[in-house]
Amino acid sequence: MSLETFIQQLTNGVSLGSLYALIAIGYTMVYGILRLINFAHSDIFMVGAYFAFYLIAVFRLPWLLSAILAVALTACVGMTIDRVAYRPVRNAPRISALITAVGVSFFLENLGLVTVGARPKPFQRPELMAKVVRIGPAAISGVSIWVPILSIGLVIILLYVIYRTKLGMAMRSVATDIDTTRLMGVNVDTVISYTFAIGSALAAAGGIMWACKYPQINPLMGIYPGWKAFTAAVVGGIGNITGAMIGGFLIGLIEIMAVAMFPSLSGYRDGIIFGLLLVFLLVRPTGILGETLKEKV
């Protein structure tokens, strides 16, 4: 492999990885607080991309404004899903909550298929993202540069919220011990609602940037990115935000590099990631940064 293709693939892998990281954070936050795999998260990612698409194509809003509005709307969708579907099963056996999550995920996908149709739609990306930049010998698309920068910016804001605000303190507290937090006078349901809002907003941002990277959107576009991001969350150590980021970059790089180095494996790229997931569960189930979760009796 020549140096320039290497640099191209590296930036490609980093930008893909940063998208996985954004989605993985949503999974890991919800899991950290509720011990629930939010299967619908991958479809919230899709919903975000569609909101942006319709705001741009139908309402003719400027690109940046549509993106911000789409993120806000998707955050509301995330809160609604929590309120309508997850809150009623919060005290039910864990398997009920998981089945509900699978149901919500399938509902969003099929509702998408029925309402907007299965045909992929062309996503209009801004000039900045479409432009090709030359760095040294390599030609790199604007997406590969802007996506990691924007993602890291969003993660810095998130870390500020979590470690420097009252809401963040409440979230960390709920993740540690939900009952004690309730006794301390924190409205736990509101905190969980905000967690879903933040996670969904990040997923929407990821979805919009994904649509800039691969400018065709369809109602099932979230499934594979979602599962790979979940793998990233497990690999990084589920419940751990820094771990989710490391896992995301790792998965993105492995996926791109494996195909770049062994082109004959390109058909197996999804299988490689899921195989890695099984290996990690066998060898180091707590992930890279995770600590052993103690079962509360």
């Binding site: 579907a85 099963v89 039910a92 009920s96 089945i99 509900t100 699978v102 149901g103 919500v104 399938f106 509902f107 099929n110």
Partner: peptide
């Protein structure tokens, strides 16, 4: 899928 969620 709506039925599944409502059942749960």
């Amino acid at each position: 899928s709506a039925l599944l969620v409502l059942l749960m």
